[in-house]
Simulated assay, not measured.
Amino acid sequence: MSDKHEAQPGDTYASMIPYVVPASLDLLQGPTAGVVELPTRLDWSPNSRYDLASLDEAIGLYNKVISEASTEADLTQYLNRDVLVALWPRLRLPRRCAELWNQRFPELAAGRRG
């Protein structure tokens, strides 16, 4: 599900980015181990491979996919519910993106406080 609304006076570019939030965390059935290579539409950096055995690389992958996904399919292919819940407190997402996910999934916000 995309976050779409019409531009209003005073809106900033950051407030208009159409972040995608899944309908349910249970849809996130992506990998939990191994090396994941992201397509250019999600990661245009020179190294778009992430080893999920590395905490730092897993965090990088989740930050990138959540902030750059343009479809729910991007999220379901690369993210895993259990990994997301475990990593959520460590992710550094754009403020509005994190707010949209926290609004849809209060259990993520609760995990950050806990």
Rank of each mutant, 00 (worst) to 15 (best):
S15F: 03
T76C: 05
L84A: 01
I17K: 11
C97E: 10
P89A: 07
E68Y: 08
D11I: 02
S70R: 13
Q8V: 12
R49Q: 14
D56K: 07
T76H: 07
N80T: 03
R90Q: 14
T32M: 09
A98Q: 15
L75I: 07
W88V: 01
A98P: 08
P22H: 00
S54Y: 00
D26S: 15
E37C: 06
P39G: 04
W101L: 14
M16I: 08
D43T: 04
D51E: 02
E37A: 08
G114E: 04
R112D: 14
P46H: 06
D3E: 14
D56V: 04
D26I: 09
S48M: 06
R96H: 11
H5T: 06
S70I: 11
A69Y: 02
G30L: 04
S70M: 10
L108N: 10
L91W: 01
D56A: 10
A69W: 03
E37T: 15
E6F: 11
R112N: 10
R92P: 05
A73Q: 14
R49G: 03
Q8A: 14
R49E: 07
Q103I: 12
E6Q: 13
R90H: 13
L38W: 02
D56T: 07
A23R: 12
A53C: 08
L79G: 05
E37H: 02
S24G: 00
M16F: 05
G30S: 05
L91M: 08
Q77V: 15
A69V: 09
P39C: 04
P39L: 06
P22F: 01
L108V: 15
L42C: 03
Y13Q: 14
L84T: 02
K4T: 12
R104K: 15
G111T: 11
K64L: 15
D26Q: 13
E107V: 15
V65E: 06
A14P: 04
L42E: 07
W88N: 00
T32N: 09
L38H: 00
N80W: 03
W88E: 00
Y78S: 08
P9N: 13
V83W: 01
A14Q: 10
V21F: 11
Y62C: 04
A86P: 05
A33R: 08
G114V: 08
Y13H: 12
D56P: 07
P9M: 13
L87R: 04
